[in-house]
């Protein structure tokens, strides 16, 4: 445990807190801009079991912000590359690579095998699916999303707190909100938001501080403004998800105000 002594030295963490980290199981969906810092710090912290879900390959334009990957990793699957590189950093932990998309047919079995789920994806359809699977299996979901120089952070479904659908019940129209591929993003932005996600994950695991449940934190890197906006659980929305079969949210058919 010498490698974790700086955690153990924190009297709020101590040996029992580090033991909780060592026994924790965390599923990271998406090993891109947000997923990379989350994975690096979870690995360093000694989280006992980490699942990495990503069907994509490392591309040259990823290297500007996805700092785990090297030139030699280009064209290789991100989940498999991350598993290999993280294992070299911490051989004591159990790393599972899932080089596949998070989909209706694997969502429940993936979520079930972990204690905390982390949304590091870049599209609404997967974000709604992760949320719904977490609601069905009662797993806390640590969320972040980014746009150019701005980020949003929250924790959903934590101790019966609000869910992603309580914050945004209606998915946007296709193309309404572009992802980094179409829009550009300052490289440090997902790094900063991913670290905030990891902070929430560790707080949940250890039972430290105040978890960002029922609150959306917004961050703007150009002004350095941060805000915390509270929101409430919509039981009708949550019960509907609990009682319906898991399905893809149809982004095309949604009707907006």
């Amino acid at each position: 445990m010498a490698r974790y002594s700086r955690h153990i030295d924190l009297h709020e963490v101590g040996p029992s807190g580090q033991r909780k980290i060592t026994q924790a199981r965390v599923l990271v969906v998406g090993a891109g801009g947000l997923g990379v810092p989350v994975l690096l710090y979870l690995t360093a912290a000694g989280v006992g079991k980490i699942g990495i879900v990503d069907p994509d390959h490392v591309e040259e334009e990823n290297l500007q912000r996805q700092v785990l990957y090297r030139e030699a990793d280009l064209n290789n699957n991100k989940a498999l590359v991350a598993q290999k590189l993280l294992k070299a950093r911490n051989s004591e932990i159990d790393l599972h690579a899932y080089p596949q998309a998070f989909q209706v047919d694997n969502a429940i079995s993936l979520v079930e095998a972990y204690d905390v789920v982390v949304d590091c994806t870049d599209n609404f359809q997967t974000r709604y699916l992760i949320n719904d699977a977490c609601v069905k299996r009662n797993k806390p979901l640590v969320f972040a999303a980014i746009f150019k120089y701005e980020g949003q952070l929250s924790v959903f479904n934590y101790q019966d707190g609000p869910t992603y659908r309580c914050l945004f019940p209606k998915p946007p129209l296709p193309g309404e909100v572009p992802n980094c591929e179409d829009n550009g993003v300052l490289g440090v932005l997902p790094g900063i938001l991913g670290m905030y996600q990891t902070n929430e994950i560790l707080k949940i695991i250890i039972g430290l501080g105040k978890v960002l449940s029922g609150t959306l934190m917004t961050v703007n890197l150009l002004t350095l403004d941060q805000k915390q906006l509270t929101f409430t659980r919509d039981n009708k929305e949550v019960n509907h998800i609990k009682n319906s079969p898991l399905q893809l949210t149809d982004i095309n058919d949604c009707k907006l105000i």
């Binding site: 599209n123 974000r127 999303a145 949003q152 992802n179 829009n183 993003v185 997902p190 906006l229």
Partner: peptide
């Protein structure tokens, strides 16, 4: 008031 959209990037 604050008016904000959902972000999707990651």
């Amino acid at each position: 008031v604050d008016v904000f959209p959902p972000f999707s990037g990651g």
